[in-house]
Design a protein around this nucleic acid. Structure first.
Lengths: 135, 135
DNA sequence: CTAAGTGTATTATATCACTTAATACACCTA
DNA sequence: TAGGTGTATTAAGTGATATAATACACTTAG
C-alpha cells in the first residue's frame, strides 16, 4: 500500500490491479471531483514515473487513456494539462457513472434481485451497514 | 459469443474474461436464481469441459470456488451437487450482493457522487434509460 | 543557438495469470 | 471389474503487464 503525493494529485498504489489502471482511475477521480483544477498542469510523464517508482511507459499508457477520455490535453514540448472544459468533465463523469450503474445492475440481476430490491437495499444502507435479505 | 446448454445449466462464454470466472459467475447465478434446483447434480468436470470445449482443469478451478462459496458439495466418486441448504444459498447471495454494492458505491464516490445522487439515479433509471447530471 | 524539459516510439526482456495437454491416482457404484 | 467421479502433477504455450535502454520531435528558457 504505497502512498504518494505528486503536486495536487494523490496516489495510492498496490499490486491488486495493473499499475496503469490505478493511475488512470485515481487521476480520473481527482479530475472528476475537482481535486485538481481545470486547466492545471499534470505531472510530466517522467516526473510521475519517478515519484511512483515505475516505468515512464506505464505512466504513458494511463495518460493516453486520460486524453481519450477527454479529461486531459497534451501539448508537445510543454506537458499534459487538465481540460479547461467543464462540459468534457461533466459528460465523462455521467458516462462513466452510467457504465458503473449498468454493470452493477447486471451483477445484481444475475443474483435475482429486481429494481425494487436494490432501491430498498441502497435506501437501508444509509442507516444500517448491512441487513435485509430480499426476494 | 458461445452459447451452450448443459443439463439445466446455460452458459454463454466469450474471451472478455477468464474462462473459469465466466463458468463461476454463471453457475453462481443459476444456483442463486434457482434455475438449478437444490440438491441437483451438476455436470461432471469432464462432461462440462467437453461441452464447453475447454480443459478439465479450467472447469475444476471454477468448481472448487463454487464449493468454497458453499454453493456445491462434492462426493468423491459420485460427482458435484448443488447444496441442499437454502440457508447457504441465501447467505451467499446476500454476501455477494453486499460486495457488489460496496464496490459500486466506492466507484460512484470516486466520481464525487453522494448517496442521494445515486438513489436519484437509480430511481430515474426505472423510466428513462439514462439522464440527469447530478452535482 | 543551446540546453533542458516535454510527449512519443521502438526494441528487447522478464514475469505472471490463464489455459491446454497428458497422465496418474483414489474413490464410488453398477 | 469396469467405468464414471473428483483430484493432483508436470510441462508447455500465450498474452497482458511492466521494465529497461534508447532515440526522436517539439517547446521554452537562457
Amino acid at each position: 500500500m504505497e502512498e504518494q503525493q505528486v503536486g495536487s494529485l494523490h496516489f495510492q498504489i498496490d499490486f491488486s490491479q495493473p499499475l496503469y489502471e490505478q493511475i488512470l482511475d485515481q487521476a480520473r477521480s481527482a479530475i472528476a471531483k475537482g481535486e485538481i483544477a481545470l486547466g492545471d498542469k499534470m505531472p510530466s510523464v517522467r516526473e510521475l514515473a519517478q515519484e511512483l517508482r515505475m516505468n515512464p511507459n506505464t505512466v504513458m499508457r494511463a495518460y493516453q487513456e486520460l486524453e481519450r477520455d477527454g479529461l486531459t490535453e497534451k501539448r508537445r514540448g510543454q506537458g499534459t494539462y487538465v481540460t479547461s472544459s467543464p462540459e468534457h468533465v461533466a459528460s465523462f463523469r455521467t458516462a462513466l457513472a452510467a457504465r458503473y450503474i449498468d454493470s452493477f445492475m447486471e451483477q445484481m440481476e444475475s443474483l435475482g434481485f429486481a429494481w425494487e430490491d436494490i432501491e430498498k437495499y441502497i435506501h437501508q444502507k444509509k442507516d444500517t451497514p448491512l441487513g435485509g435479505n430480499g426476494l
